[in-house]
């Protein structure tokens, strides 16, 4: 096992796939200088400016050109810098990338990865902190990936690059520098739709994903120290998502808590709960709760921002409430 940061794990995955497949390339702002966080550091030296393409600040065309290049048989990694700027390319993502295969009766293969760092990061305020992954789970035609650690970042990015489906890949930008471990040698692809069973227990099932996972694990460890063992499932991908793993856990615990950094109202937690109620029936669940951010934009000042942040203490409290 090699010890690497999450950002380096992602870089190594891109490097491996670009060496394997000459049709893989990257386009986005500043990628020739390594990308905003060094996700592409040094790649231009090996692959040149034709495959590591620094672009103008033209989000619509970064997204749309990625699609056009996929339609002629290449596999672009569309780097969107910070998720909030995907908003400037919603037509290209929602009306074009997500639609072409279906709308053209199967003729198009939009094999793109839209890579987009999301979530809170160093008090970046309302336009640089959003988590809107639920919007895209709602969007037919795309796969939605949201890893929480270095190993998953690498393995899921390999899958995303090899996928013929368009993949929205949400990097947890607050954890770029968190160290993790990846296997030596070839990075193995991690299949979409398989949760990581991050903690084992029978008292409660906590379902979570992306940047909030470390806080959930801290909460689970605290609960364990108090003698309460909870099951933690890191979904890793929210479309498709591992309904079987969640249902299997709930068959033991009967209690569900979904935790996400995104706004609670209309979040993907609601989908998890509704699906499990449908699947397990009214008697299959004793409790189903969700914990997410209040429905306010992410504020700037640290004490205000903390109102939005789901701390381990809040998760512990929510878990205890769910077991009361």
């Amino acid at each position: 096992m090699a010890e690497v940061t999450l950002v380096e794990a992602g870089r190594l995955a891109v490097l491996q796939e670009m060496r394997r497949d000459p049709t893989v390339w990257v386009l986005g702002e500043d990628v020739g200088r390594g990308g905003l966080w060094g996700q592409y550091r040094g790649l231009i030296d090996e692959f040149g400016p034709e495959r590591i393409v620094s672009t103008p600040i033209s989000e619509s065309t970064i997204m749309g050109a990625g699609l056009g290049a996929a339609l002629v048989g290449t596999r672009p990694i569309i780097e969107m810098r910070i998720f909030d700027f995907v908003m400037c390319a919603m037509d290209e993502l929602v009306n074009q990338i997500a639609k072409v295969r279906y709308m053209f009766g199967g003729q198009a293969k939009p094999a793109v990865v839209v890579r987009t760092p999301h979530g809170m990061w160093r008090n970046s305020a309302a336009q640089h902190s959003q988590m809107l992954e639920a919007w895209f789970a709602h969007l037919p035609g795309v796969v939605v990936v949201a890893p929480s650690n270095a190993e998953d970042e690498a393995g899921l990015l390999v899958s995303a690059i090899r996928s013929d489906d368009p993949v929205l890949f949400f990097d947890p930008k607050d954890h770029w520098l968190v160290p993790g471990k990846i296997a030596d040698g070839e990075i193995a692809a991690i299949p979409f739709g398989k949760a990581r069973h991050a903690r084992q227990g029978d008292a409660l099932t906590i379902v979570t994903w992306s940047a909030i996972v470390p806080n959930v694990l801290a909460a689970a460890d605290q609960l364990a120290s108090e003698g309460i063992k909870v099951d933690v499932l890191d979904l890793r991908t929210i479309w498709p998502w591992d309904q079987d793993a969640v249902a299997a856990s709930l068959s033991r615990t009967k209690r569900l808590l979904v935790v996400h950094e995104a706004v609670e109202v209309g979040g993907f937690g609601a989908e998890v709960i509704a699906t499990m109620i449908d699947r397990l029936g009214p008697s299959g669940l004793k409790v189903a709760k969700r914990l997410g951010a209040p429905r306010i934009p992410v504020p700037f000042a640290p004490p205000l921002e903390n109102e939005v942040r789901i701390s381990p203490a809040r998760i512990v409290a929510a878990a205890k409430a769910a077991m009361a």
């Binding site: 997204m63 056009g68 672009p76 009306n95």
Partner: peptide, 26 residues
Amino acid sequence: LGANGVVGGGLPIAVGAAQGLKLLKS
């Protein structure tokens, strides 16, 4: 490569197709 229901929708796609073709040395 398709008609488009969004005015201007084909412009970014066309330049990307050209970029892909160039990368593939077509």
